[in-house]
């Protein structure tokens, strides 16, 4: 039996289980639970049920530093980056190569650990997560799209899309149905059983988009999704991401130096030398693009 005291109204709930909302004043009790050592359960509550995730910022980084050690030399890739990314936002991280945008992408996606500073996904500190929780997060909360597609070469399009669903413990039938549905959604309904090498670059990236949606993530992280595609195909992928963003409210975070991305982004963060150079909002960009005549 544990005593949970509501920080808002002082209500005391005695329970053996989990209480994430104060029964008296409906205040959020997850932080209280977290402090009491319910870390894993809290994470699951936080990430498992969308109806409760009401945080304004889905991703938040605080004083994020990353230093790569190359032999004797220390190369700083990120120097204190602070970004707040809103739920449902379409955000582009722009910058020249080597500016640190891919590093930021890796930190936000939980693919690498920061040297200093913290990164929160739905207010959960990623540095505090163990291997299982991180895998859980990658599996269900984040969908990844890469420049090089990174499909599993020995698997068909459908198998690639259903792989994250296997990890999520979905039943076989449901998996096949959802996989086919997702591939249909990205316009590859007739290519279910093609291997990656039998598909064009654009089609492979579509499979990757479908795969990123496999477990209905809250965030799609795209690292240069159009980098290996020609102009037209790249535009199609961008449109696809934008449509997904608008239809389902999934947050899209995309590291890119593709100027086509600017058109669809709600916000653009410019990174240079591991620091945020400037942040542009949609309205400002429209103006700028207008003057450029793009």
């Amino acid at each position: 039996m544990a005593r949970i005291e509501c920080p808002e109204c002082g209500h005391v709930e005695e329970t053996t289980g989990l209480v994430t909302i104060c029964p008296n004043c409906k205040a959020d009790l997850r932080n209280v639970m977290a402090e009491m050592g319910h870390r894993r359960e809290t994470l699951r509550e936080v990430t498992g049920d969308d109806s409760m995730t009401t945080h304004e910022f889905i991703v938040r980084t605080k004083d994020l530093h990353k230093i790569y050690v190359m032999g004797e030399v220390e190369v700083p890739a990120l120097k204190g980056v602070e970004v707040n990314i809103r739920r449902g936002e379409y955000l582009s991280i722009m910058g020249p190569s080597g500016s640190g945008k891919s590093t930021l992408f890796n930190m936000v996606g939980g693919l690498d650990k920061p040297t200093k500073g913290t990164c929160f996904i739905e207010e959960v500190d990623m540095a505090q997560l163990d291997a299982f929780e991180l895998a859980w997060l990658r599996c269900r909360k984040i969908g990844y799209i890469f420049q090089t597609f990174n499909l599993i070469p020995v698997m068909t399009a459908l198998e690639n899309v259903t792989l994250p669903m296997i990890f999520a413990g979905m039943s076989s039938d449901e998996m096949m149905e959802r996989g086919a549905l997702l591939l249909d959604l990205v316009g590859l309904g007739d290519r279910l059983h093609h291997k990656p090498y039998e598909l064009s670059g654009g089609q492979q990236q579509r499979v990757a988009v479908a795969r990123s949606l496999a477990n209905n993530p809250a965030i799609i992280l795209a690292d240069e999704p159009t980098g290996n595609l020609d102009l037209q195909t790249g535009k199609e992928i961008i449109d696809l991401l934008k449509e997904l963003n608008e239809e389902s409210g999934v947050t899209v975070i995309s590291a890119t130096h593709d100027l086509k991305m600017i058109d669809v982004s709600d916000r653009v963060i410019h990174i240079r030398d591991g620091q945020i150079e400037r942040v542009e909002n949609r309205a400002d960009i429209d103006l700028e693009v207008g003057t450029l005549g793009v």
Binding site: W136, G169, E174, E247, S248
Partner: peptide
Amino acid sequence: AKRIYKSDTDWGQVQRQI
């Protein structure tokens, strides 16, 4: 799109594992 984003509601208990 709606169908896709709805289909997770009936996962129930399964949703908690890897």
